[in-house]
């Protein structure tokens, strides 16, 4: 199934269908991850791959007003060269797999270095049952800090590319037209009013119960953002700006990263190493709990606000009438 959808993406020329197919592909991947005993990863993939990325791609399609790729006549050389390159690379990689350990072999090198320690010691050292959360937030806190910075940087990049628009007199362009063409859909309005609070509640559950069940800052942040995006899609951007304005989102984006960095600095000041939460409280396990809660909160804030900021930038640009956009581009 997975391969079939991936294969179809080569031949599809209609970009709209392609994006929808990509959503299905991601959902299949998520169920595959669940099969491989990775519920945390499956949850993330389902929320992101089947939720946010298709929305962003559709937003791009709306902006470029072009939903089909034209058929291009290619020379034989232009067709054969990529196929040749792909076949050779693939053959080399398959040859290399002959040395790899078999699937789900418990003696594989990957399972015999640090993994046993994470599984056997983390309950005493960190005190939370979800090993994925304790590795993510504590043992590999530096990695996660790096990832959060990458997300933050990407958010700033999108903001710089699409966010700022000026009108002819040089003022920041901020008048968004109402994107809601769905005002007459009563069913959508009623259903969304029922489901959006539940989505928000579920996001909070994933956030604060992430130490005991699958979940954590990354998933919660994404689910939180999805609730707002759904609201924006049904009621228009104006309605969402009344709840969270762009200014608030930019602020929470920074606060999220600073909370993470600040937790590390706090543990430095209290006499531990950077991001060594044991120093945060008298009892090291208590300190670990506190530290993990703080940085998961930072991660969730940063992820949610970056996702929202990216979506608002795409949707806000689509909402600006084309003539205003040209004027705005001249003055930038």
């Amino acid at each position: 199934m997975l391969l079939a959808t991936a294969m179809a993406s080569i031949f599809l020329r209609d970009l709209f269908a392609l994006v929808m197919l990509f959503g299905i592909f991601s959902l299949l991947t998520a169920s595959f991850f669940l099969n491989l005993d990775a519920p945390d990863v499956a949850m993330t993939e389902a929320a992101i791959g089947a939720g946010i990325s298709p929305i962003l791609m559709l937003g791009t399609l709306a902006l470029i007003r072009n939903t089909s790729a034209p058929r291009v006549k290619k020379t034989i050389r232009a067709t054969m060269a990529p196929i040749l390159a792909v076949t050779i690379t693939g053959a080399a990689l398959i040859y290399a797999t002959l040395d790899m350990p078999y699937l789900s072999d418990p003696l594989a090198p990957a399972h015999n270095h640090v993994a046993p320690r994470y599984i056997q010691q983390s309950l005493q050292e960190i005190g939370i049952p979800n090993a994925v959360t304790s590795v993510l937030a504590s043992y590999r806190g530096y990695d996660t800090l790096g990832e959060v910075f990458v997300i933050f940087t990407a958010g700033i990049g999108v903001l710089a590319l699409l966010g700022f628009m000026y009108d002819a007199s040089g003022r920041r362009y901020s008048q968004f037209a109402d994107t809601a063409s769905l005002n007459n859909h009563t069913i959508l309005h009623v259903i969304s009013k029922i489901t959006i609070p539940l989505i928000l509640l579920f996001a909070l559950y994933v956030q604060f119960h992430g130490e005991y069940s699958p979940g954590g800052g990354f998933q919660a942040g994404v689910i939180f953002a999805v609730a707002f995006i759904l609201y924006a899609m049904i009621y228009g951007l104006e309605a969402v700006y009344k709840v969270v304005s762009m200014r608030v989102i930019r602020l929470t984006m920074v606060v999220g990263v600073l909370l993470y960095v600040g937790t590390g600095v706090a543990s430095l000041i209290l006499g531990g190493n950077y991001l060594d939460y044991g120093a945060l409280a008298h009892d090291p396990v208590h300190g670990q709990h506190l530290g993990i809660i703080l940085i998961e909160l930072g991660v969730a804030l940063c992820v949610a606000s970056v996702m929202l900021s990216v979506f608002f930038n795409f949707a806000g640009r689509a909402a600006v009438p084309p003539d205003a956009m040209e004027e705005g581009d001249k003055s930038t």
Partner: peptide, 11 residues
């Protein structure tokens, strides 16, 4: 991979 997925969508 959990973190890579979120970084992937940002990029």
């Amino acid at each position: 991979i959990l973190t890579a997925i979120v970084v992937g969508v940002a990029t």
